[in-house]
Design a protein around this nucleic acid. Sequence first.
DNA 1: CGCCCCGTTGAAATGAGTCAAGCCTTGTGG
DNA 2: CCACAAGGCTTGACTCATTTCAACGGGGCG
Lengths: 248, 248
Amino acid sequence: VSLEDHPFVTKLSTFMKLSAGDLKRLGSIFGTEKAIKKRKDLVVDGEEYRNLCLVRDGYALRYKLLRNGRRQILNILLPGDVIGFPVSFFDRSSYSVVALSDLTVNVCSIDAYVRLCLERPQFSLALTWLAIKEAAIYAERIVDIGRRTPIERLVHFLLELHSRLLTIGLAEKTTFKLPISQEIIADALGLSVPHLNRVMQHLRKEKFISNNSRVVEFFDIPALQTLAHYQPLTFTQIPLPRSGRSSA
Amino acid sequence: VSLEDHPFVTKLSTFMKLSAGDLKRLGSIFGTEKAIKKRKDLVVDGEEYRNLCLVRDGYALRYKLLRNGRRQILNILLPGDVIGFPVSFFDRSSYSVVALSDLTVNVCSIDAYVRLCLERPQFSLALTWLAIKEAAIYAERIVDIGRRTPIERLVHFLLELHSRLLTIGLAEKTTFKLPISQEIIADALGLSVPHLNRVMQHLRKEKFISNNSRVVEFFDIPALQTLAHYQPLTFTQIPLPRSGRSSA
DNA sequence: CGCCCCGTTGAAATGAGTCAAGCCTTGTGG
DNA sequence: CCACAAGGCTTGACTCATTTCAACGGGGCG
């Protein structure tokens, strides 16, 4: 199976070079493509899960449900993201993942990936970089929820989503499709649905954004970035030696 | 320099085996031990930082300061933790790190560590595991701040800190030294200081914990775990082949 | 001895949640 | 093709948890 056009590869390419041989090995591990139906649970809180699972197409949700029925959404998984962060590295999951839309994914066990890493260490570094990126996204969410006002929070969330969609080619410069309901945004930002709704209306009224039928448009990105204290971050390249020591 | 008794090594040992040769190579990279004064900035928001830096002794704080003067604390860095997550992997930092106490650290550049990884891939996997652990801590913090009540939040925070201190041998079964002020806890949990104070008093009054001169004692850990929805997590071992392929 | 940090307390103000209802849109089945 | 159902969006009124602001006390450190 060829992975060249896989959004995961697109993401990897932003911080490392992949040789044809690398791609082939990746393909040999992530060969099987799997279709998942909307609403299907991929990971269940409390159960064991030990795979890397790459989203090729569609959206998913990583979340935790508390006893009192409250839900906190940790992240929205886009094409190229890894289902299995961070749960595959613990004896059992503490989060759930559910498909938001119909999904196609490529699955590979942790064990198989580790074997690949021992053979080609750059893949292990790639995994580190991805885990770090995940941590960085979470860190910004903490700041969002902990100390930013609801308006700032929402804007920050939208800017981040836009930026992530851009890197996998699923957004325009000032516009993108927002594939999620307000309930989901509220649960991601630690707000109630009515309040989120009012904040959204405020943003529309003040002409910061428009938002019709799940398409968001930013009217003044620099202003929004300032408002939300948004700092676009660029990854460093993995500092691999320039020699061909790791080619096929 | 010998690292055998370094809390970082203690942490690594919980999920991988380190040969004598591994330790020696690690020592060759993290050789220099550095003393840092209390209150000294280690990482500054907006500047470049590109080191792994291991805390051997003392405490530090990773935080972000917003324009309006609000501060969100991302994590409290304990002995064995890595200063440089996640900022060393981006072109410039978006967080600051400051020493909470006098500190001794071992520093190593990212480049040097990556060279080590290419030579011994298991170190690269170790870094992945650590990054994942960091992400998992952040994830729980998101749930804390987003959807747990202030009491749950505080208890969860204390349990987690206790568990982290236990793995590096700095806590007793039901007791530990809490090296931080209420202002810091408040900024970590997204609460105001007066309110955190009242929540703390509540916990004491209800005989859940005692807390004198920065020593915390838990009276009924299972009850506290239930109260806070706390799920202790155990890391999986890195699934390295049992053969000695990676020995010195 | 005095200062400063830290913990503590109180009163008042408010932002955000809750509950409940209505409407609009989308998808679906007859 | 229409009718209905279901989910998602919007609105309002009310409540109260939490913040804010301000002041005080104690204890350790210089």
